[in-house]
């Protein structure tokens, strides 16, 4: 089993080192245009925040899994966990925001000891789409999490779960031994209480990340293949598949460099640049809140420690008016969201 970059004391555990790699080499030598140059060519620089639609809150970097591609560098050894005090500050914003989606992520958000209380309180705000990003295996890992499917149902939670492939080999290679079998069991349990069933209002969507140095194919085609295989082999239903491109940061960047795929992957991202995807990039309608309450344009910027370009830096100072129109902070990792059909936490964009 691999360990987090932090545990390994890898130089890539430092976000500054990651940004150095992304700014130097092929980009400094001019072999490839920087992201800023590229979006300038299509008249889309600078990117500016529009009205907030999605509030994404990271409840902590602790996770029961250590996936090879994880952009959070999450794992059992990560101790960064949102405190009740910061949760209260988030709840103030949740109650007043006009955002239609609240998106809880991690690590495994369920591992935050105050997860249930926070969900109870946030649910009262009546936000239209309340997402919990569950890695599925957490629902099988320990008895104390076994009742979570019922808890999700009670709060009308929209469950979004990672599933890199419909075969055991590919899934376990990316996410760890035994992950596929536990995920299948968890999906069956979710189906049994109505999640993901055709016409059911209990939404269950899956997230597909490529298991290597390549871009995802067409989201609709992949969804069709996933649906057929999971139903034929396991009688499992789900609603939609979100195809998400792996961004070249954290553990995926480590993998790209170690496998000598970094330059080819960056070339592939730049070649697949799609100006139509830029129009809808998630950073322009999303705000990402870190475990310690700081604000970022997206989850990836959070991991690279690139805070919002605004006077408002922390959830305790939240001001929707001041944040709207801010210039989005970008670097070369942003090519991951603008390649091909585009990529976001809600799947493709163009």
């Amino acid at each position: 089993m691999i360990t987090s970059l932090h545990k390994r004391e890898s130089e890539l555990a430092n976000s500054k080192r990651q940004l150095e790699i992304l700014s130097n080499g092929i980009f400094k030598q001019g072999e490839l245009p920087t992201f800023k140059q590229k979006i300038s060519e299509t008249g889309q620089f600078p990117l500016r925040a529009k009205k907030l639609e999605i509030l994404q809150i990271n409840l902590g970097y602790m996770c029961n899994q250590v996936c090879e591609h994880c952009h959070v560098d999450a794992g059992p050894d990560r101790k960064e966990i949102m405190t009740p005090e910061t949760m209260l500050q988030c709840l103030e914003v949740i109650k007043s925001t006009g955002a239609h989606t609240l998106d809880l992520t991690g690590g495994a958000p369920e591992m935050n000891p105050n997860f249930r209380w926070f969900v109870d309180e946030a649910y009262k705000a009546g936000i239209k789409d309340f997402i919990v990003r569950s890695n599925l295996t957490i629902l099988q890992t320990n008895k104390k999490y076994h009742d979570l499917p019922g808890f999700f149902k009670k709060h009308n939670i929209h469950v979004v779960s990672s599933m890199p492939h419909w075969t055991r080999g590919k899934t376990d290679k990316q996410r760890g031994d035994g992950v596929f079998d536990k995920s299948i069991k968890a999906l069956k349990e979710l189906n049994a209480i109505g999640y993901g069933m055709p016409d059911s209002p209990l939404r269950l969507d899956l997230v597909y990340n490529p298991s290597g140095a390549f871009l995802p194919s067409n989201q609709k085609s992949l969804e069709k293949d996933f649906k057929k295989a999971l139903f034929d082999d396991f009688n499992i239903h789900f609603h939609h598949l979100f195809a998400i491109t792996n961004l070249p940061i954290s553990r995926f960047l480590d993998y790209l460099i170690a496998s000598e795929n970094y330059e080819d992957y960056m070339c592939a991202l730049v070649e697949a640049y799609n100006p139509s995807a830029v129009k809808n990039v998630m950073c322009t309608n999303t705000l990402s809140v870190s475990w310690d309450g700081f604000l970022y344009d997206c989850d990836f910027n959070q991991m690279l420690q690139l805070p919002v370009n605004s006077k408002v830096k922390h959830i305790s100072e939240y001001n929707e008016h001041l944040l709207e129109g801010r210039t989005i902070v970008t670097s070369q990792h942003c090519y991951g969201c603008t390649a091909g059909a585009g990529s976001s936490c809600q799947g493709t964009l163009a």
């Binding site: 492939h165 075969t167 597909y208 490529p210 290597g212 390549f214 194919s217």
Partner: peptide
């Protein structure tokens, strides 16, 4: 080969 990987072909 690349196209197959993108399509989830094992």
């Amino acid at each position: 080969t690349g196209d197959g990987l993108q399509r989830g072909i094992t």
